[in-house]
Design a protein around this nucleic acid. Structure first.
Lengths: 107, 107
DNA sequence: TTGACATGCAACCATTAAGTTGCCTATTAT
DNA sequence: ATAATAGGCAACTTAATGGTTGCATGTCAA
């Protein structure tokens, strides 16, 4: 579990997860295109994400395809949120999103 | 949001959140009792948790009471988990917990 | 089969972060 | 008043982390 927290601590790695959330199964090359750093640096970040089981990898020939796995993130959130508290928080979050969407429609 | 991820990246700080999850509103001194480090080090950790809004503080005389705030953790988990995926993950988690509880009862 | 492409591995550097020691301030109780 | 208690602030040390460069490996296509 420590690996998950450490992996999420870096903004570049969070952006990689964002990338995969938008479009799953990207190669290393594709993921590099969105970050301002060398391919080697991105590789290191992806290795950490793999170690944390946040990213799962499939080889296709010489290409490495990356897939997001959100299970660890869900497990993480359960550590300090009780069952009933979760429902309350979810309801508040849904309400907030609803209001924001409404505001966007009007504006 | 970056502050939240950074704050959660350290095991000592996670233990502090665990402490508050067990018993909310503890003083600095009480929180120190559970960690193998100086009071000053614990203070630093708590300052980071406060900055991330994971811990809220109330002064009572010369004592500083610390309270857990789980809202940021819930928001965090929403970043990479879609609405329907969340339901699926929650169902799986509940099932898993149910099985574990059953096993414990039998054993 | 040879060149280009996709990725891996290792050494190195700079910055951040965790923890320490030492000293200061404010509140409580005798 | 003053001693004990609860906590804050700052400088310093050391280890971890993010990023770089350079070179090696394996796969595809002409």
């Amino acid at each position: 579990m420590d690996a998950v927290f450490k992996a999420l601590a870096d903004e570049s790695r969070r952006q990689l997860l964002d990338q995969l959330h938008k479009s799953n199964g990207q190669t290393l090359g594709e993921l590099c295109a969105h970050l301002e750093m060398t391919r080697q640096a991105v590789t290191k970040h992806l290795l950490l994400l793999e170690a944390a089981n946040l990213v799962v990898v499939v080889w296709r020939g010489r290409e490495k395809l990356h897939y997001l796995n959100s299970v660890p993130i869900h497990e993480l959130s359960e550590r300090w949120i009780g069952k009933y508290e979760r429902h309350r928080l979810q309801a508040m979050s849904d309400l907030k999103k609803g209001l924001e969407q409404n505001k966007t429609k009007k504006g």
